[in-house]
Design a protein around this nucleic acid. Structure first.
Length: 744
DNA sequence: TCGACGATCGTTTTT
DNA sequence: CGATCGTCGA
């Protein structure tokens, strides 16, 4: 096998296959290439069977990329190699060994919102209002326990030491686990702890897995939590061939339980571990690498790497000062348009922001200028109400113990079974120690036995048709029918589609389209998967909700967290202001919080290959108010020789919008900026009355929706928007510029 | 039981 | 500002 394309350290990282190895791979240091070569080396030179290799990563993106690269570089059959995420790997193990933990293999995986519902139920049952105890607080606590690797009956000392079992929250945790178990369900955290439980309590199980996997490889090691650490340590205990790859400077998930100790103490736990550093960067210009290195050097929690590159010096970084958030969006749009006219492919351009909400304004600006873009992992398709509803139907069919799913859709569309009746039925289920599904069937089968519940005839017939439909779908699913066939049946016979069609509103139409898209997604899954199943489909979407097409010529927009592992020629980072980035919350966390934000900034910078733009706004609309924040401290941390400053001047047309309620903010503008010389302080109080094309109260005609009344008007010129109430009661907001409107 | 409306929240990042 | 929650009235 030819290793000539690798540098000396990369080569070392490939051929040191035996014993514990930790590879510290800096940003852009050819990590994936090295890992793929290492696997290839194991197969070709060491004659290891693909069946014996396990490679786990943190994110689906990383797993997918590695799989693709391995497949591209080799002609051997790689089907047997397990390259997956921790969560997918654990889901697979749990399904295979479900009976050990009293689960059945068709268990449901609950996402965060479903976990939250369970917490709400538990709190509600105890009569605690969400105002006294926030469900998310409880969830955070529960997640914390699981990140530590705690499970019911866990005897691990470290995990137990950190837990106060007299805490009220610990009781919530226990009830929560009981509820999950009753529903034959697991959440993200217990995918990991479930497998830990399995491995630690059943020696015959862990032995099987230890015997199978001779080589264990962990990517994105800096993102692993304690539970995951224990998991890989157990797996590799027999052969001791564990190789972890990570970069402590890119550790940005501590809030999710990522534990820096996993890196810092690796050599303590594996005393004979070899340490290999990959420090040559192949991705970015010297300017970018040196600037990023000086920023990250300020962190104290590091092992210490010196990233360097032999690439060209490249363009200066550009720091851009904008008067406000709208003009920041305009600036970016203008620059991107320029790039595209210079024949730069939109695929090579990316916009990063600290939090998802920031994408909105930029999207508006890009759309206005007809720049094609995609928001990566933005408002998630699978989180839309109608999609979740249909998925709940599928979950009922797959796992009838999933009471959460049943209660979600038992009255959607309305079957006359309101909250009160549902409560009655649920209480009866608890009393009889039956699942919701079982009690529903009993009521349907022996209605006279349950007369005391005083359910109306309407409700009983509703229950009846619901139960029949789920029963039939179960039968259909059990026969050889494909998931999409079952989905179609559910869609039509539940009355869900019909209810939307009857609505005849714009929103309903959108929902129908989303349900059609869900159908397409199932079809695609069936094509892609060898043995498609409903369970498999559900798992794919809860563990990997990302869908995206790499081929399309579009500018990418994403959070910085989402950008990890990616690279673009041109990168725009927006919102570099105190309280936005670093975030307000992290600033309250003290040094640790700021160090993590700094790592995040480092990740953002090192995505850029050719040119990096760092933008900030003097004024920004936050929480419904115009705020004035100073430029991010991270800008100051870049040595001056690596960047040049650009001030964007206020444009007349947009200026008016930043004057709220007739108040002129110009004074604060100049006070707050260290570089106010770029800003013309020409703000004048606007005395002219705003002329709307369609003022409040106008009755008008919309080409598609018919007659309506203007409830509200806002915006100026190009930006004028109206809120219209239509005759059928529907309310809709339009941009006057585009909407087919006529006065009448 | 359900829709409409008002009030009141609270907002980081993701498997 | 926008989304969610809760209360009200029909």
């Amino acid at each position: 096998m030819n290793l000539e394309h690798l540098n000396p350290n990369q080569k070392l990282a490939v051929i040191e296959t035996e014993g514990p190895v930790m590879i510290l791979a800096g940003a852009g240091s050819g990590k994936t290439r090295t890992l793929v070569s290492r696997i290839q080396y194991l197969l070709d030179e060491k004659k290891v069977s693909p069946f014996r290799i396990l490679a786990v990563t943190f994110s689906n993106k990383a797993a997918r990329e590695m799989r693709e690269r391995i497949a591209a570089d080799n002609d051997i059959d790689f089907g047997a190699i397990q390259v997956t995420t921790f969560h997918s790997f654990c889901a697979r193990v749990l399904r295979n060994e479900a009976q050990y933990l009293g689960l059945s293999r068709n268990f449901t995986i609950y996402d965060t919102s479903e976990s939250k519902s369970i917490v709400k139920t538990i709190l509600g049952r105890r009569g605690i209002s969400v105002k006294e105890v926030h469900p998310s607080e409880v969830l955070y606590y529960i997640d914390g326990l699981k990140n530590l690797g705690y499970y019911i009956g866990c005897t691990d000392e470290e995990a137990n030491d950190d837990i106060d079992k007299d805490d009220l929250f610990f009781q919530f945790y226990q009830e929560y686990e009981a509820e999950l178990h009753k529903s034959n369900a697991v959440d993200f955290g217990s995918l990991i702890t479930g497998v830990l439980n399995l491995f630690e309590k059943f020696p015959e199980v862990i032995e099987r897995y230890q015997k199978r996997f001779h080589y264990v490889l962990v990517d994105e090691y800096q993102d692993t939590n304690r539970a995951q650490f224990r998991l890989v340590r157990l797996l590799s205990e027999e052969k001791k061939n564990i190789c972890v790859v990570g970069d402590e400077d890119q550790s940005i998930y501590s809030w999710r339980g990522a534990d820096i100790r996993n890196i810092l103490e690796f050599e303590k736990i594996f005393p004979d571990a070899k340490l290999i550093k990959l420090e040559q960067n192949y991705r970015s210009s010297k300017n970018i690498i040196e600037a990023a290195s000086s920023v990250i050097a300020r962190n104290s929690q590091r092992k210490g790497k010196k990233l360097w590159t032999s690439n060209d010096q490249g363009d200066s970084i550009k720091v851009v000062e904008c008067p406000d958030d709208k003009q920041e969006a305009e600036y970016i749009t203008k620059e991107i348009t320029k790039l595209i006219t210079k024949n730069v492919s939109p695929k090579e351009i990316a916009i990063f922001y600290r939090n998802n909400a920031q994408s909105r304004l930029i999207e508006d600006a890009l759309r206005r200028s007809n720049v094609a873009y995609k928001v990566v992992a933005g408002i998630k398709f699978y989180e839309r109400k109608e999609v979740k509803d249909l998925l709940a139907y599928i979950r009922c069919v797959v796992n009838d113990k999933d009471s959460l799913a049943i209660s979600r859709i038992i009255n959607t569309p309305t079957r006359g079974i309101g909250a009160r009746s549902l409560r009655k039925i649920e209480d009866e289920a608890i009393k009889m120690n039956l699942s919701l599904w079982e009690i529903i069937n009993k009521i349907v089968d022996e209605p006279e036995e349950y007369r005391f519940l005083k359910l109306s005839a309407k409700i009983r017939s509703g229950l009846n048709s619901f139960a029949t439909m789920i029963h039939e779908s179960k039968l259909l699913a059990a026969s050889t029918e494909t998931p999409s066939v079952v989905y179609e049946k559910l869609l039509n016979e539940s009355g869900y589609l019909e209810a939307l069609e009857v609505e005849k509103t714009y929103e309903a139409q959108g929902r129908i389209e989303n349900l059609e898209e869900l159908y397409t997604a199932i079809k695609q899954y069936e094509e892609y998967e060898d043995q498609p199943s409903m369970v498999g489909f559900l798992e794919t979407i809860t563990l990997d909700a990302n869908k995206g097409d790499e081929q399309i010529e579009e500018v990418s927009m994403m959070t910085i967290h989402g950008s990890k592992g990616l690279e673009y020629h041109y990168v725009f980072v927006v919102g570099l202001e105190e309280t936005v980035f670093p975030s307000f919350q992290s600033m309250e966390d003290g040094d640790d919080g700021i160090e993590e934000e700094r790592r995040l900034f480092y990740v953002a910078m090192t995505r850029a290959m050719k040119k990096l733009h760092l933008c900030f706004a003097q004024a920004r609309m936050l929480w419904g108010q115009v705020r004035f924040n100073s430029p991010s401290r991270f800008i100051d941390e870049i040595p001056e020789e690596f960047y040049e400053w650009e001030g964007v001047k206020k444009s007349q047309s947009i200026k008016k919008n930043t004057i709220k309620d007739g108040i002129d903010y110009s004074e604060e503008f100049s006070q707050d900026s260290d570089h106010s010389d770029f800003v013309e302080t020409t703000y004048v109080q606007s005395t002219a009355r705003i002329e709307y094309k369609f003022p409040k109260g106008t009755s008008l005609m919309h080409k598609l929706y018919g007659e309506g009344l203007v409830l509200d008007a806002e915006g100026f010129g190009e930006d004028e928007k109206v809120v219209i109430k239509f005759k059928d009661g529907a309310r809709k907001k339009f941009l006057v510029k585009f909407a087919p409107l006529e006065k009448c």
